[in-house]
Amino acid sequence: MVTWSGLLSNAAPKLFQIFAVLAIFFGIYAAAFAYGARIKGKSQSKIALVIFLVPALILAMTGLGIPAIQTIMESFKNADSSKWVGFKNYAVAFQDPEIVRTFINTFAWVIISPVIVTALGLTLATMLNKMKREALAKTLIFMPMAISFVGGSLIWKFVYGYNDPGTPQTGLVGQILTWLHIDPPHLLLWSPWNNGLLMIVYIWGFTGFAMVILSAAIKGIPAEIEEAAQLDGATGIKMFRTITVPMVRNTIIVVLTTAMVGTLKLFDVIHTMTGGNFKTDVLSNRMFDENFVYLNYGRGASLAVLIFLGVIPITYYNIRSLRAERKR
């Protein structure tokens, strides 16, 4: 039974902790600033670097840099990391039919869903451009961005809900199929199409993001260019193909690559909706299961490294364009 005193005694120490953490953070920094401001001359820059930059670097290195190296080493060791086994984890991963299945699924995810998200986002952004009352439509499509993928997965699990044919349907898709005189299948068990149904959850969650970013890029196209094209007789689809798409090309690539990295690392949707069962498993979920269910750390690490290898080309491409941009 929930009681006020129960809630209060549970919440009070946690709320106090929030307060304490913030007080300590601001306290330490107030002192560091007071100390740093008193140092004069050349060493001032050095002190400033230590206070400003070093904590962030330590956080990034202990959180990402060092653990990444450890995991790469781990991936060459056995299940309980007691012995070096060379490339065995990788070899096994490429032979185990279940893990091969996760490669295929992940690959399908990374190819299909970013393309749909970007295409849909671009179409919506173009259509919404200069449309009156765009704000409401935009908010509604963007809203899933605020909803966790756990929440979103449950929302869609309910849409896909299964009831035996002939009985009253409580899932929306089942009902629509029944209206069309089709016996509804158990949608989440319906391999391989269930992968597509899971992708819909991601597309639903991420299209708003693509739309908003692309919409800003489209609004940034200089008015003169659009007018010149219109004088030349370009309208509708032609305008879209010859002006809009080339002008926002870079933004399209940003959205596409962001979605690709997102789907490569995708975890929440799979974990919540199917737990990787019914042939819907993906790399990130399998990695989690290897580490925390099967307790095979070596193999879990090797799958994490494979995710990393998938991200590297995209990171490399991004760094190259960042350098080009900075030099300009």
């Binding site: 653990p67 995991t71 990295v261 490569l264 690392k265 750390y297 995710i307 990393f308």
Partner: peptide
């Protein structure tokens, strides 16, 4: 570019 999957454990 380092997926957080790499650093969890």
């Amino acid at each position: 570019g380092v997926p957080l999957q790499l650093s969890l454990l």
